[in-house]
Design a protein around this nucleic acid. Structure first.
Lengths: 230, 230
DNA sequence: CGTATTGTTGATTGCAATCAATGAGAGTGG
DNA sequence: CCACTCTCATTGATTGCAATCAACAATACG
């Protein structure tokens, strides 16, 4: 997860070979280091690709956070996922990306050139498994998230979101939210006002604690949150 | 797409070898007939599998319609997709199904035994491609649907749904909805009353026509619907 | 033909959105 | 260093869309 040679073309893609190991969420992964990607670093807010861009590459997060989202023509935004370290995303059936991707905070990703899947799976079956697994994980997350968007109340949405983030990044019951309120709102199908109010409410009820910086979260009553979750 | 030997075990799974060709939505598919599945027929309302069942098989719809859905503990339901002829679903990373599947109408599916993906891709690269493609298509649909659930109004949801169904099953601008209002509602994150009212409204405005049987739809003003769509 | 299921329509409510103002930090330049 | 600005977050007042509650109509089914 190193060897980043900077100043390397307009898109900051270094040709250096990079290992694609260390994947979270993929138990089957036993791949030896494979030379299939280059590193790219993004600063907070930087765009990785936009809807409609040629989908010649896909990506794996090394560190940081990427938001993937779609827009309606009037600007309404739906963030379908926050991609954290280990997550793979950006693989498409068609020639173009069907969603956009931006760095939520300073982030490093591995850039992988797209190639026929059969060929890849043949040359490198472990990586094939990893990819398939990653697609399925993304799909399972999407299913869970559709349930949230379609059928949960604001309070339930926030509770689910906090538990999910905690499961992915918390040390103990504490973690730092990498994204701002507008990102959370556009992920959960709410407004920033409702996100803020609901967090305040959960804090008042003693389920969570929000530090002054308002990004640091402590889960104070996980069972109560889980009751809101399901 | 025949050779269904009935009365064949508790789950109605016939051991007959069956071709998995004829896939909609999968342009790359050039597979010769492969013997990798058995047929199973379901009557309207019959369960294919439930959340928590062992995920030993996955499925491809031959004819009819399957709803895949998740439930909250109080019974709220989110139908994440209607699986129509050609669609592949039910493939999971874990040992158990994370959602349920039922027949919306009388339906026939191909049942495929799950096996390590690398092995499958090696023995049968075309089918590997097809599977990967299908996962990605499902994921793309899920992304579109999250945008709908999180950010669209009731009218926009219905317009999008009708255009989507039309693209998948319409002859000309006419088609028969295979599912009832409660299915549509639970797919779009609405109530049946809102679905009914919105359809009536669209009909009053001349965008669609709903026959007496209330399942037959005619799109009367596709451009207007498309304006509501995006 | 009677009963159950599914769909429509109307009245009212309520949750979250919208509109609006203020507060709290972070970064900048005088 | 401090005032200024900009962005992000919180809180309050009000509105509005879709949910809920309720009754009835239409269709399918045994």
């Amino acid at each position: 997860m190193q060897t980043y040679s900077a100043t390397n073309g307009s898109r900051h893609v270094a040709p250096a070979a990079v290992a694609l190991r260390g994947t979270a969420n993929i138990p089957e992964q036993n791949a030896t280091a494979k030379q299939i990607g280059a590193l790219r670093s993004l600063v907070r807010g930087e765009e990785l690709f936009a809807e409609g861009d040629p989908a010649d590459h896909f990506y794996k997060v090394v560190s940081g956070t990427i938001r993937t989202y779609k827009l309606l023509n009037d600007g309404r935004r739906q963030i379908d996922a926050f991609q954290l370290a280990g997550d793979i995303f950006g693989l498409e059936t068609g020639a173009e990306h069907r969603f956009s991707a931006e760095a939520v905070e300073d982030t490093t990703v591995i850039v992988v050139r797209r190639c026929p899947f059969a060929a890849l799976a043949h040359d490198n079956p472990d990586f094939g498994d990893q990819l398939m697994s990653s697609m399925m994980t993304n799909l399972e997350r999407a299913h869970d998230h559709m349930l949230l968007l379609g059928r949960k109340t604001a309070q339930e949405k926030i509770a689910t979101f906090l538990l999910d983030m905690a499961a992915r990044i918390a040390k103990g019951d504490r973690f730092e939210l990498p994204m701002q309120r507008s990102d959370i709102a556009d992920h959960l199908g709410l407004t920033i006002e409702t996100v803020s109010r609901t967090l305040t409410q959960l804090a008042k009820n003693g389920l969570i604690e929000i530090a002054a910086a308002s990004r640091h979260v402590v889960l104070r009553n996980k069972p109560a949150l889980q009751r809101l979750n399901a």
